[in-house]
Amino acid sequence: MNAVKLIGNVGREITVKEFEGGKLATFSLATSETYLNRHKEEVTNTSWHTIVAWGKLAQSCEQLLAKGKLIAVEGRLNYRQYQNKEDQTVKVIEIVASKVEEVSRMRA
């Protein structure tokens, strides 16, 4: 099974491209985890993910998303590669979203 669930913050403004068959939305998502190291210091690691959404979901993302917004994304991992202008192979790992929704922040 190829399934991914992430909660994080939108890292940059969404990019939307329109095609004959619909829309493609692309954006980055920052996820963070915090832990204590062996010196009892708090350490935060942030990972960046490329998210793509197609069709009606892309249209929803275009209206819903803004930089910094906390969201939940469900989808699948997609691996692809292409040749760039220098004829080098570029490998891309992205998450193809099937569901994107805003997450409300809980207050302590």
Score class of each variant (00 low, 15 high):
Leu29Trp: 12
Val73Phe: 07
Arg105Ala: 15
Val4Lys: 04
Met1Cys: 09
Asn9Leu: 09
Leu70Gly: 07
Val43Ser: 05
Ala97Gln: 07
Glu13Phe: 09
Leu64Glu: 03
Thr50His: 04
Ala53Tyr: 05
Ser60Leu: 14
Lys56Tyr: 11
Ile71Phe: 02
Met106Ala: 13
Lys99Arg: 02
Leu77Ala: 02
Ala53Ile: 11
Tyr35Glu: 04
Ser28Phe: 00
Gly22Cys: 00
Glu62Asp: 14
Gly55Asp: 13
Lys99Phe: 08
Val103Ser: 04
Ile71Pro: 02
Phe19Tyr: 14
Thr34Arg: 09
Phe27Val: 07
Glu102Val: 09
Asn45His: 12
Asn9Tyr: 10
Glu101Asn: 10
Val10Lys: 03
Leu57Trp: 10
Ala72Gln: 13
Ile51His: 00
Tyr82Cys: 10
Ala58Phe: 09
Ile51Glu: 06
Gly75Thr: 14
Gln81Arg: 11
Glu42Arg: 04
Met1Gly: 15
Asn45Gly: 08
Gln88Trp: 00
Asp87Glu: 10
Val43Glu: 04
Glu33Ser: 08
Glu13Tyr: 08
Ile14Phe: 11
Ala25Gln: 10
Thr44Trp: 10
Gly75Ser: 05
Tyr82Asn: 02
Ala66Trp: 02
Leu24Pro: 08
Lys85Asn: 14
Thr34Lys: 11
Glu102Trp: 06
Thr89Asn: 10
Phe19Cys: 01
Leu77Thr: 06
Val52Asp: 04
Gln88Arg: 01
Ile93Phe: 13
Gly8Lys: 03
Ile51Ser: 06
Gly11Asn: 02
Lys67Val: 14
Ser28Asp: 00
Val52Tyr: 01
Tyr82Glu: 10
Thr31Ala: 12
Asn37Leu: 09
Asn78Lys: 14
Asn84Ser: 10
Val43Ala: 02
Gly55Asn: 14
Gly8Tyr: 05
Trp48Tyr: 05
Leu65Tyr: 12
Lys99Tyr: 12
Val90Pro: 08
Ala25Asn: 11
Glu41Phe: 03
Gly8Thr: 05
Val103Cys: 08
Gln59Tyr: 08
Arg80Glu: 15
Lys5Ala: 15
Val4His: 07
Glu33Pro: 04
Val4Gln: 08
Thr34Ser: 15
Glu94Ile: 02
Glu20Thr: 05
Val43Tyr: 04
Gln88Met: 02
Glu33Tyr: 02
Asn37Asp: 15
Ala97Met: 07
Ala3Asp: 06
Ser104Asn: 10
Glu86Asp: 15
Gly11Met: 01
Gly22Phe: 00
Gln63Ile: 02
Asn78Gly: 12
Glu102Asp: 05
Glu41Tyr: 06
Arg38Lys: 15
Arg38Val: 15
Glu94Val: 04
Thr15Tyr: 03
Tyr82Arg: 04
Leu70Asn: 13
Val16Met: 08
Glu41Thr: 09
Trp54Arg: 08
Val90His: 09
Thr44Ala: 02
Leu77Arg: 03
Asn78Asp: 15
Ser32Ile: 01
Thr31Leu: 13
Ala3His: 06
Phe19Gly: 09
Val100Phe: 06
Val96Cys: 12
Ala53Asp: 11
Thr50Lys: 01
Gly8His: 05
Thr89Trp: 04
Glu18Asn: 14
Glu13Cys: 07
Val16His: 07
Val90Ile: 15
Asn37Phe: 07
Arg76Phe: 05
Glu102Gln: 12
Leu65Ser: 14
Ile14Asn: 06
Lys67Asp: 13
Gly8Trp: 00
Thr31His: 12
Phe19Ala: 04
Leu6Thr: 05
Thr50Val: 11
Ala53Lys: 06
Glu74Met: 06
Leu64Pro: 01
Gly68Ile: 03
Lys91Gln: 13
Ala30Val: 08
Gly11Phe: 00
